[in-house]
Computed example of a mutant assay.
Amino acid sequence: MAKRVSHWNDGCPVARALDVIGDWWSLLIIRDAFDGVRRFGEFQNSLGIAKGMLATRLRDLTERGILKTAPASDGTAYREYVLTKKGSGLFLVIVALRQWGEEHLYTANEPRSSMIDRETRAPVPRLELHGKNGRRLTWRDTEVLKVVRK
């Protein structure tokens, strides 16, 4: 198996973010945390992941400040995993992945989960990127200014 190469120092925020959350188990753990999963056994049951793999991913996400451990909310001796402010900042990433998957990976009548607004019970609208002037932006309307390394 090839060793994973780090792109932390590439000057690219996408590469750096993927170094932290770029494997699918980590993203699914974060998704489950947004859905209220908090305990090791709950993550394992939800994902069907091996204990060792789950322990490694939870440790990495905790060390990188995405999750933190807290005393169990029911007062037992267990510890729970909760999203930090940094971890909560990944909400739009998860929503964007969800919406991309809904648009491109399902047939029209295929059953799937859906995201709704708790207050109105209406489906959450598609995410859009807008410029400072309010105009909707696509990838063709943006560019990345690369860092020049000396």
Rank of each mutant, 00 (worst) to 15 (best):
G22H: 13
L83H: 01
G65T: 11
F40P: 03
T56H: 10
M53E: 12
K68Y: 01
T56W: 01
V14N: 03
K68W: 02
P13K: 05
D19A: 15
A77P: 07
S88P: 03
F91E: 06
T76V: 10
L58M: 05
T69N: 00
I66M: 00
L18M: 15
C12I: 13
P71S: 06
T69H: 03
I29A: 04
A50F: 13
L83G: 04
A72G: 03
K51A: 15
D74Q: 05
K68G: 02
D19T: 13
D35F: 15
R79N: 08
R39E: 11
K68V: 11
I29C: 04
Y78V: 10
F91L: 10
Y81V: 04
L47A: 11
I21A: 06
R79P: 01
R79I: 04
I66L: 05
L28W: 06
E42V: 10
R59L: 12
G65Q: 09
G89H: 02
D35V: 13
D19F: 08
L18T: 08
S46D: 14
E42K: 06
A50K: 13
V93E: 00
G75D: 03
V93H: 01
D35A: 15
P71V: 04
R38K: 14
R39K: 15
W25C: 10
I21N: 02
T69Y: 04
S73L: 08
T84A: 03
G87L: 01
S73E: 09
E42M: 06
L61D: 02
I30S: 01
T56A: 14
P13H: 04
D19I: 14
R59Q: 15
G89W: 03
L58H: 02
R79A: 02
A33T: 00
E63F: 01
D35N: 15
S73V: 09
L54C: 07
G41S: 12
D32F: 07
F43Y: 14
A17V: 08
K51T: 14
L83Y: 02
R59S: 10
G87A: 06
Y78L: 14
E63T: 11
A55Y: 02
A70K: 01
L47F: 06
F91T: 03
G87H: 00
S26L: 11
R39V: 13
G65L: 13
F34E: 09
G52S: 10
V14S: 07
L18H: 05
E42L: 10
S73H: 07
S73A: 14
E63K: 10
V20Q: 01
